[in-house]
């Protein structure tokens, strides 16, 4: 496809800590196309948030360091861009929504001042234009009586409303790419439904591409077109949303899907689990990072780390075993 607006190749991010070098993101590559929603799924420590911070140039350095790769946004490499040029793009063409709407707004500034700042800086609006635009944005994200509420401080807003303000801010300049890092995790389900609905509507009207970072398979199923599953800093599976849920190819994806409690499942049935603990990034095994928890593991898995390989339908997964043909060697504790 040629409407690719972000091409990430072999991204690596590491952190230098007391325990040694930690490779938080390792060889991540993907393409983002116009108007699509790409999900990045994984558990804590899988590197999904660090990936997004790297794309925004927000990895704290030190201790963090981007140690490999490039991220081409319309031909320009974000990772090697002069800071001045990057700040023209960040918040303007590429915007981000963070998980915690309580801490990502400045408590000392009114909502108006925070929203105005964006368009004054990036679009060169006058104060009056910017205010008008900010009120319009609040209206679009569904804040009631925006022309009055805009002069409130963040603490006067509820969590759901603050997240709406964050979305309004992120979309102020009609960005090409919106990176949403767990945007609904801190919210209640009825508010989550409202926010997801809002993001879909705005994507349709503006054609924004969304990178949705989440641990919630329900959110993925709701909003994403394509999904990347991360484990221990690597992408272990890339697939279309339907294919991933219907036919997971990596044992970790399979385990993750099985261990999600479902509304439609009979009460008091035991949940399938993934044995063991998430890996310690400071002491990763030589072979596949998932091998110690994997029911399908073979001796080969302990010696060599599997690379992403194409399957017949252009989806990719990093596993030596074809789980659609093999049955698990260990009992997967169903």
């Amino acid at each position: 496809m040629d409407n690719c607006i972000l091409q990430v190749d072999d991204l690596g991010v590491c952190f230098h800590t007391e325990e040694g070098r930690i490779q938080a993101v390792d060889g991540v590559s993907f393409a983002l196309h116009e108007g699509e929603t790409l999900g990045i799924v994984g558990e804590s420590g899988s590197g999904k948030s660090v990936t997004s911070l790297a794309l925004m140039g927000l990895v704290p350095s030190p201790p963090g360091q981007i140690c490999a790769g490039r991220a081409l946004y319309r031909g320009e490499n974000l990772l090697a861009m002069p800071p001045k040029r990057f700040s023209e793009i960040r918040g303007n063409r590429i915007a981000m929504i963070f998980q915690d709407p309580m801490t990502s707004l400045n408590p000392y500034m009114t909502i108006a001042d925070q929203l105005i700042e964006v368009t004054v800086v990036h679009l060169g609006h006058s104060h009056r234009e910017a205010l008008k635009h900010a009120i319009e944005m609040l209206e679009r994200v569904g804040i009631p009586s925006p022309s009055r509420r805009i002069f409130a401080y963040p603490h006067e807003f509820s969590g759901g409303m603050r997240q709406r303000v964050m979305i309004a801010m992120a979309l102020s300049c009609q960005p090409d790419i919106l990176i949403a890092d767990e945007p609904t995790t801190a919210l209640d389900v009825t508010i989550e439904a409202q926010i997801l609905e809002l993001m879909k509507q705005l994507q349709q009207s503006q054609g924004t591409a969304i990178i949705m970072i989440t641990h919630d398979m329900g959110v993925v199923a709701n909003i994403c077109h394509r999904v990347h599953v991360m484990y221990a800093g690597k992408i272990v599976e890339q697939a279309g949303c339907d294919a991933l849920f219907a036919n997971p190819r990596h044992p970790y994806t399979l385990g993750l899907l099985k261990s999600v409690p479902r509304l439609t499942q009979a009460t008091s049935a035991r949940l399938a689990t993934i044995d063991g603990q998430p890996p310690d990034l400071a002491h990763l095994p030589i072979g596949c990072a998932f091998e110690p928890r994997c029911g399908y593991a073979t001796p080969e898995c302990r010696q060599q780390s599997p690379q992403l390989q194409d399957s017949e339908d252009a989806d990719r997964f990093a596993c030596f075993v074809d789980i659609t043909k093999e049955s698990p060697l260990k009992d997967p504790h169903v």
């Binding site: 389900v189 009825t190 439904a193 919630d216 993925v220 199923a221 709701n222 509304l263």
Partner: peptide, 11 residues
């Protein structure tokens, strides 16, 4: 509330 919970099943 029940209808708001996103289900882990895209279809």
């Amino acid at each position: 509330l029940l209808s708001s919970v996103p289900l882990p099943d895209p279809r």
